[in-house]
């Protein structure tokens, strides 16, 4: 690396920083500024101090939306990260010939979420949906319900779709990580008489802890940003049971034109997501890489 006093490094940097500054950084600052105002997006802007934050703190719907997204994240950690880990473990037991399996499981990741959402809205449809029809075929009519219309199942139903999409994604990440576990370690454990399950639990999983931390970070911060599935499948319903911060934000800003209030909620959400991200990166840094060279 050469110390350089010319403008050259800046010339290489300017285009990227200009686009990033224009489309991300400046709007972040403006969103923060808007959060102290009452504004409908085009009329007069009124400075209101921290009123919007006080309102957000008292807003039951906003609080509920956080609860919902936390439940969603908790479920998706199980359905995406844990299931992904188990699937990767299964596949890594016998690597040969598993390609077709990984392809099948990974395919949903390729699809636009809107396509996934529309498709699964049909799966859950209570008139002709796949799920109710399957239950009927199996003689389990009692379990049939309006999956997306029932407050007790809607959030889970959406989470399951998310799991369907991303289990393959995390499986792929973990599979790549498992492949980096030195074979000698595994062979040695095998000679000591460890079964596949013990190998998985005691050797493989601990050795890819780093990849698991990253996956958790992705799952959690990604979960806070979820929107497509919720917007298309339930749009917050039934009775607000699937209202998450993002759908609530979009409603406040774009439907009811409360730009100031929406911005305050966006700031709160940003602080939470960035804060979690920083904590995770710190934790990851403190534990030096053990496996990946």
């Amino acid at each position: 690396m050469k110390p350089n006093r010319t403008v050259t490094p800046y010339l290489f940097l300017v285009p990227a920083m200009a686009v990033f500054g224009f489309a991300v950084l400046f709007p972040v600052i403006m969103t923060f500024a808007y959060s102290f105002t009452e504004w409908n997006g085009y009329g007069a802007m009124v400075f209101v101090g921290i009123d919007n934050y006080v309102k957000a703190a008292q807003d039951v719907l906003f609080r509920d939306s956080f609860v919902h997204v936390l439940i969603y994240i908790a479920i998706t950690i199980v359905l995406e990260v844990v299931v992904g880990l188990v699937l990767a473990g299964l596949v890594s037991v016998r690597r040969r010939g598993s390609l077709w399996f990984r392809v099948a499981i990974f395919t949903p990741v390729m699809l636009p979420m809107v396509v996934v959402a529309v498709l699964w809205a049909f799966v859950y449809n209570n008139d002709f949906g796949l799920l109710n029809a399957a239950l009927q075929t199996l003689g389990l009519e009692d379990l049939q319900r309006v999956w997306l219309g029932d407050t007790s199942t809607a959030l889970i139903a959406v989470s399951v779709v998310s799991g369907w999409v991303y289990a393959g994604f995390y499986m792929t990440i973990f599979y790549a990580a498992f492949n980096q576990v030195p074979t000698e370690v595994i062979e040695a454990a095998r000679l000591d008489g460890a079964g596949e399950w013990q190998l998985f639990r005691r050797i493989k999983v601990p050795m890819i802890r780093n990849a698991i931390t990253v996956a958790l970070l992705l799952c959690i911060t990604g979960g806070f940003q979820g929107f497509d599935l919720f917007y298309v499948m339930t749009n917050g319903g039934p009775y607000g049971a699937t209202e998450i911060p993002t759908t609530y934000l979009v409603k406040s800003v774009f439907t009811f034109q409360n730009v100031g209030y929406g911005s305050a909620m966006a700031v709160v959400l940003t602080v939470v997501v960035v804060g979690l991200g920083l904590i995770f990166t710190r934790v990851n840094r403190e534990k030096p890489e053990e496996v990946r060279s």
Binding site: M1, K2, P3, N4, R5, T8, P9, Y10, F12, L13, A16, M17, F20, A23, V24, L25, F26, P27, V28, I29, M30, T31, A33, Y34, T221, F224, Q225, F227, P245, T246, L249, V253, V259, G262, S263, A266, V267, L269, T270, V273, V274, G277, L278
Partner: peptide, 29 residues
């Protein structure tokens, strides 16, 4: 390839971009 004034600042800003959620800017955008 270069060391220059503001390098760490710019890198920090871009690194922040890795964490910033869409919600932090789409309203003003």
């Amino acid at each position: 390839r270069y060391r220059f004034r503001g390098r760490n600042l710019f890198m920090g800003l871009l690194a922040l971009g890795l964490l910033l959620p869409l919600q932090s800017y789409f309203i003003a955008q």
